[in-house]
């Protein structure tokens, strides 16, 4: 049997909010070219934006000299996006489903990103080794392969 070929794409950018547009374009183009429909490519793009926003805000605390690494793997079944940083990690188990009413009462502006990532992607996994390497890996399957 012929072995399925996996295609690989990499992007390394400075950890700055102004690079989010470049990151989204990179992910959106790969997703569309891989055969995802426009709506699904938009979902993958948003999930990756949310992950990188978390890195810029929480892991790197807006230190723009740090970098974010994106690795995209494409095979016949799925797209896998891994985002790596070397900043501060956090306890993902403490991030519960957001309680909007409570957030509004506290005028809290964040906390929604991880919930969006989990809603938009089929699989989301975190690995933390603070200061050394933190990774979030997200998978989206092609509809007929899920």
């Amino acid at each position: 049997m012929e072995k399925q070929k996996t295609r690989q794409f990499k992007l390394k950018v400075a950890s700055s909010p102004e690079n989010l547009g470049t990151i989204r374009e990179f992910i959106h183009d790969i997703s569309l070219n891989a055969g995802f429909d426009s709506e699904t490519a938009g979902q993958i793009e948003l999930a990756v934006d949310e992950a990188c926003t978390n890195v810029i805000k929480h892991a790197h605390k807006y230190e723009y000299d740090k970098s974010i690494d994106l690795l995209v793997l494409l095979d016949a079944q799925k797209i896998t996006v891994t985002i790596t940083d070397r900043g501060l990690g956090f306890d993902v188990n403490k991030v519960a489903k957001p309680d909007l009413q409570k957030y509004i009462h506290e005028a809290k502006k964040g906390g929604l990103g991880i919930h969006l990532m989990r809603s938009l992607m089929d699989e989301v996994q975190f690995e933390f080794n603070p200061g050394v390497k933190n990774q979030v890996t997200m998978v989206k399957y092609f509809k007929n392969n899920k």
Binding site: L20, L46, D49, E50, T53, L100, Y103, I104, A107, K108, K109, G110, L112, G113, L116
Partner: peptide
């Protein structure tokens, strides 16, 4: 993205 939604909250 959620950064924008945060303003409303």
């Amino acid at each position: 993205s959620s950064a924008g939604l945060g303003v409303f909250m």
